[in-house]
């Protein structure tokens, strides 16, 4: 598992907010973007899925996506299109949506959490690892780098993003850390 060693220190008492009504929930295979500084985006129960946060501190714009599978090709055959389900189509959608709100590539801070494995050693499908590989590919093509990462492990993760500050926090049953 790789993660930022920084504990959520200053401000940890108030972020993430305890009042659930302040949270904009991003469901599995969904994404949300915002330029409202009051918004806190959150996505729950990341297993092998990944939660990608993007934030432009200058434009005050951010977004969060919860992708389940790496590639849209093949997997979606015979099903209704839900592009945010996949890393390859979803992350592009997320990027375009924050650019539409005024974010710029130069200022964009991208972070990721999730990509966990089931408890048993076999981890036969390696979906989490593949989600990260495809994310890196997409970011590389778009000249973006990961500024924070909390991936792997066997425990589910929750990710919060503050639109006001860009603070991204990942919470597992054992700990809470800044991304």
């Amino acid at each position: 598992m790789s993660s930022s060693p920084t504990q959520a220190g200053i401000g940890a008492a108030t972020f993430p907010p305890t009042d659930r009504s302040q949270l904009q929930i991003v469901g599995i295979s969904e994404f949300k973007v915002s330029n409202d500084p009051n918004d806190v985006l959150v996505t729950y129960s990341l297993g092998s899925c990944i939660g990608v946060t993007v934030h432009d501190p200058i434009a005050g714009v951010g977004g969060l996506i919860h992708c389940m599978l790496p590639l849209s090709k093949g997997a979606r055959e015979g099903s209704a299109p839900k592009p945010a389900m996949f890393v390859d189509t979803g992350v592009i959608l997320l990027l375009n949506a924050v650019f539409d709100l005024g974010a710029t590539r130069q200022n964009l801070v991208v972070k990721v959490a999730g990509a966990g494995s089931p408890m048993d050693q076999c981890n036969r499908f390696r979906i989490g690892e593949r989600n990260i590989v495809i994310l890196r590919k997409i970011l590389w093509k778009n000249e973006l780098m990961l500024a924070g990462e909390h991936t792997g492990g066997t425990r589910p993760k929750t990710v919060f993003l503050s639109i006001a500050t860009g603070q991204a926090v990942v919470r597992t049953p054992e700990e809470q850390t800044n991304l």
Binding site: S79, M119, C122, F125
Partner: peptide
């Protein structure tokens, strides 16, 4: 937290490819 063991024998018997698994998950969520 999905802390459940899976049966190797069952998955071997079902013989599902990674593509089939991903398609199954995609259909389920859709």
């Amino acid at each position: 937290g999905n802390y459940y063991a899976s049966s190797e024998a069952v998955f071997n018997r079902l013989g599902l490819s990674p593509d089939a698994i991903e398609n199954c998950l995609c259909q389920t969520l859709s």
